[in-house]
Amino acid sequence: MWMKRIFPHVIGIELDPQTRCIHYRSRLDIISIKMKCCGLYYACKDCHAALADHPAQVWPCSEWAQKNVLCGACGAELTTQEYLDSDNQCSACNAAFNPGCHNHYHFYFEAK
């Protein structure tokens, strides 16, 4: 029996069904991050800056075991550590993630 997966709510500007936003729209831009500051999923840091009423905070290394990265292809929630160790691929559905996102990790995750 096939069951439809319920995605957590994602906030962003001009979102498509896989959580791509106006800022990042390539085929591989399918992750959203639960922001540490507010506990809400945003499509990207730029959407958070435009829509939230507060500055973003980074996830400390001590909290990398929490599920806070969402795969827009299947709706799986990954821990920060799972995402960082994923080799740019969802562990649940094997969808490819944008390898260029590593350039933005410092906006979301504390450096080790």
Rank of each mutant, 00 (worst) to 15 (best):
M1L: 14
W2T: 14
M3V: 15
K4A: 15
I6K: 13
F7G: 05
P8H: 06
H9P: 02
H9G: 00
I11A: 02
I11P: 01
G12E: 07
I13Y: 05
L15G: 08
D16L: 06
D16T: 14
D16P: 07
P17N: 10
P17A: 14
Q18M: 06
T19L: 05
R20P: 05
I22N: 08
I22T: 11
H23Q: 12
H23E: 07
H23V: 10
Y24V: 03
Y24G: 01
Y24P: 00
R25P: 01
S26W: 04
S26D: 09
I30S: 04
I30Q: 04
S32F: 03
K36C: 15
K36T: 06
K36Q: 15
K36Y: 10
C37F: 08
C37I: 00
L40E: 12
L40H: 14
Y41D: 08
Y42F: 15
Y42A: 01
C44D: 15
C44P: 10
K45W: 13
D46G: 01
C47A: 09
C47D: 11
C47V: 12
H48M: 11
A49L: 14
A49T: 11
L51D: 03
L51M: 14
A52S: 14
H54A: 13
H54L: 13
P55C: 12
V58Y: 02
V58G: 11
W59L: 13
C61M: 03
C61W: 00
S62R: 04
S62E: 07
E63L: 11
W64Y: 10
Q66W: 02
Q66A: 00
Q66T: 05
K67H: 13
V69R: 03
V69N: 01
C74H: 08
G75A: 06
A76N: 13
E77F: 03
T79C: 01
Q81L: 04
Q81M: 02
E82Y: 01
Y83W: 11
L84D: 04
L84S: 02
D85N: 11
S86N: 11
D87I: 02
N88S: 14
S91D: 14
N94A: 15
A95F: 08
F97E: 06
N98Q: 09
P99S: 14
G100E: 11
G100I: 06
N103E: 14
H106I: 08
F107E: 11
Y108G: 08
F109I: 00
F109Y: 05
